[in-house]
Design a protein around this nucleic acid. Structure first.
Lengths: 212, 212
DNA sequence: GCGAAATAACTGACTGATCAGTTATTAATA
DNA sequence: TATTAATAACTGATCAGTCAGTTATTTCGC
């Protein structure tokens, strides 16, 4: 042991973010109940006691992790909600590529898995995710689709279901990755899935005259 | 208390099924870790000790629950795999309606939620689900789609992704039901989702000449 | 500048509750 | 009465949360 090396640093400002980041990794791997606070603390490079300087309870840490994953995505929702005048095809292509990229490069998939798995035990978290993310995103897409229907661009049909059809393959591909790739499943390429899906769907969605 | 009433019945043959059924309900509600064996036993109308007469461990009970949900569905997979000569549209409509009905009326959705949530902690279960259900179903659909492509009935494209596109809205609708309906989300009607989805998708999937 | 005193970030051993799994005992049935 | 399904009280391991003490850092007197 180097006697001169300090046992720890005092870095109050950075700790919460480091703990949340470590917790995300552990929660995503183990789920809420099976995640040990000692593991989270060790991965964050602090003792368990330090975690309790910044968070009240384990649930509190979980809330912070799940909540943090919403914020950057509300922006996307807003971008989608922004009344897009042009042809729906452009909007869908743009949005889907963007979302696919986000989901590929962030741990959002792991958070999604956690929310699905723990929704029963944490209704409050399920509610936040639904109200601030799921409901918003579905609603915004539905509005855009209804506008396109009003313009005579899109066939009649339930706009909320159209929105579901649009996003579903991406979500399933992500859950497939999180759930089955670790046990040897052949991966889906998210970009490829969305590209092919938009092409197929547009063909069935647009009125004959509106095909690009 | 009725002194004449027996404290319990000896019904060795029926117990395992009753315990698995009770366990399904508790696991689906709480997840694996948060489910208490005392709760499962109480719901099954027996003591905890009785559970251990029929199952080695809690994991064993979980395996039984998840495995049981596969068996009836492998039949569906086989039915789909059975070389269907006719137009793809008929096959898809039939299969999707069937699957939607099954998922509506059985606790398969709850099991799906459990598998997603606990896959990290039980790779073996994730593997069984993947190898016996997910991989089989995707493969069978892909084969049917490739056959239709060879007949010149379906447009070129990745058949495995086509299969994913086909089933994804149903899965997402089910997870939406399991995860967000308890906190006030507007439900999706599974039959309606599949009906509209197949209509939309077929339009983008089929060659111009093959439209029914 | 330069120790010494004050502050507070941080540690890690401890505690109390929970719960999977065990076992000594009871009671239903053949 | 013999057999064994079933019970209920028990045990031991685990882990969230606590707290008395330790150490890095800041501040102040000189």
């Amino acid at each position: 042991m180097d006697a001169g090396a300090p046992k720890f640093r005092r870095r109050k400002a950075d700790r919460p973010a480091e703990i949340v980041s470590a917790a995300l990794a552990v929660f995503a791997e183990k789920g809420f109940a099976a995640a040990k606070l000692d593991d989270i603390a060790r991965r964050a490079g602090v003792s368990k006691g330090a975690v309790y300087l910044y968070f009240e309870t384990k649930e509190d840490v979980f809330r912070a992790v799940v909540g943090q994953a919403i914020a950057p995505n509300v922006a996307i929702v807003k971008a989608m909600a922004a009344a897009h005048p042009g042809p729906l095809a452009d909007l869908l292509r743009g949005v889907s590529a963007h979302v696919a990229r986000i989901v590929s490069m962030t741990p959002l998939g792991g958070v999604l898995k956690m929310v699905v798995g723990e929704a029963g035990n944490f209704p409050e978290i399920a509610r936040v995710w639904h109200d601030e993310l799921v409901s918003q995103a579905l609603g915004a897409m539905a509005v855009a689709i209804e506008a396109a229907q009003a313009r005579g661009e899109v066939k009649p049909g339930d706009s909320r279901i159209y929105a579901l059809q649009l996003i579903a393959p991406l979500l399933v591909a992500v859950l497939h990755r999180e759930t089955f790739e670790p046990v040897g499943a052949t991966p889906f390429d998210l970009q490829a899935v969305m590209a092919q899906h938009i092409d197929t769907l547009l063909c069935g969605l647009l009125m004959e005259g509106a095909r690009t």
